[in-house]
Design a binder for these strands. Sequence first.
DNA 1: CTAATATGAACCAATGATGAGCCAATTATC
DNA 2: GATAATTGGCTCATCATTGGTTCATATTAG
Lengths: 225, 225
Amino acid sequence: MPKQIASEVEKSLRQRIAAGEWSHDGQLPAERDIAKEYAVARNTARRAINALVDEGVISRHVGRGTFVRPADEVDMNDILQRVTGVSPTDMMTVRRLVEPQAAAIAVTMASASDLDAIVEAHEMAKAERDPAKFEYWDAQIHHRIFKAARNELLMSLHDILRVIRNRDPWIELKRKRFSEERRLGYCAQHEDIVRMLKDRDAAGASDAMLVHMNAIEMNLFGRLN
Amino acid sequence: MPKQIASEVEKSLRQRIAAGEWSHDGQLPAERDIAKEYAVARNTARRAINALVDEGVISRHVGRGTFVRPADEVDMNDILQRVTGVSPTDMMTVRRLVEPQAAAIAVTMASASDLDAIVEAHEMAKAERDPAKFEYWDAQIHHRIFKAARNELLMSLHDILRVIRNRDPWIELKRKRFSEERRLGYCAQHEDIVRMLKDRDAAGASDAMLVHMNAIEMNLFGRLN
DNA sequence: CTAATATGAACCAATGATGAGCCAATTATC
DNA sequence: GATAATTGGCTCATCATTGGTTCATATTAG
């Protein structure tokens, strides 16, 4: 048998990868360059490289190059990454699903100071005519209602929704659809919600929040989904 | 720099933004100027910039320019940190809030093949007596119901719940509380849910899911919250 | 000699970079 | 208010790089 050049190259490459020689950006030299470096034919270098691909040590992409395989972790980060790109309609469906119930829970869980905080945000929103600042206090109202529900996970989920809403496509959408008339509508709806919370009326708070959600959806899309 | 120029530019821009180079008025140079500065094609600069937009680091507006975005009040990393430590009771509250409604949405959105997939998972769960494998198919049933609702965000939220439930404290809790009797109870509840889905009965599916959630909560904590 | 391996060359297909052009939204100017 | 300049949004054709594949030929161990 002829000399096993390919497996020699393979062994060498494996060592160099393990040593972290290309861990900077994870990219190995091009097939042709590796062949040149080891002074072997491209096909020989190729077989060595292919062996490593089969082992799962590296991965290759036509036109891009060969890369050290990053340890793949399918976890929360991936989910959050995906979450940031969801469509406004999907988002509103979820808000309509979650917020009324959060309000209902808040009715039973809120302390007096929780309610005060909500009322305060509502008063600030009512007094504010600058769209951006109104927007802030509007968000605060909702945030404080979730906080009043005293459920860490629920609050975190709401925070996720907020982060999404603070991203570009949303800001544009909201900016274009904003008007004084709508601001007043929102304030009136907030008023209803706050009253139901203070009355400790769970069903009423839930209903009032749903009305509010529907109003937002109408303003954003001109229809309900 | 023959390859991956865009990501090099992206990295550089990210650093300069973090260093506060444009924090004065928050406005970055025009796309065309950035391209000129890095001596790359406009499309290349554009790709780098787009990557940063996708990350939410900057925002762009036609005719106005590109701007660094103020750091989110709450950023995803904080949320992630908080979310992973939530208590089982908070988690169950959220599940009880979300899952019945997801089932109701699934009723209206599910395609025939979505329903088939759910039925399949249910059949697998019924046939499986090994706790770990039953657990897997049980999770699949719920996952496929969320998938059938055809809402990306909703699915992602469910993914988050799953990740939390797969963390250590939960696994212990579930293992201790598992019994053949309870497995049969869960199967019967799944049966009801699946039937309602097939009957396209939104209220029924929601109710059946709520019954299931309450059963889980009873098994875990010996009481409802 | 034979079989397995190595070689070198050619061509294909996917990807990324480039440069140019045009459009649409916004802002500045008159 | 109308107009021009600026800026991001988008498409296209072209080129270079890179892995994917095949084939004829040379080399070497058994």
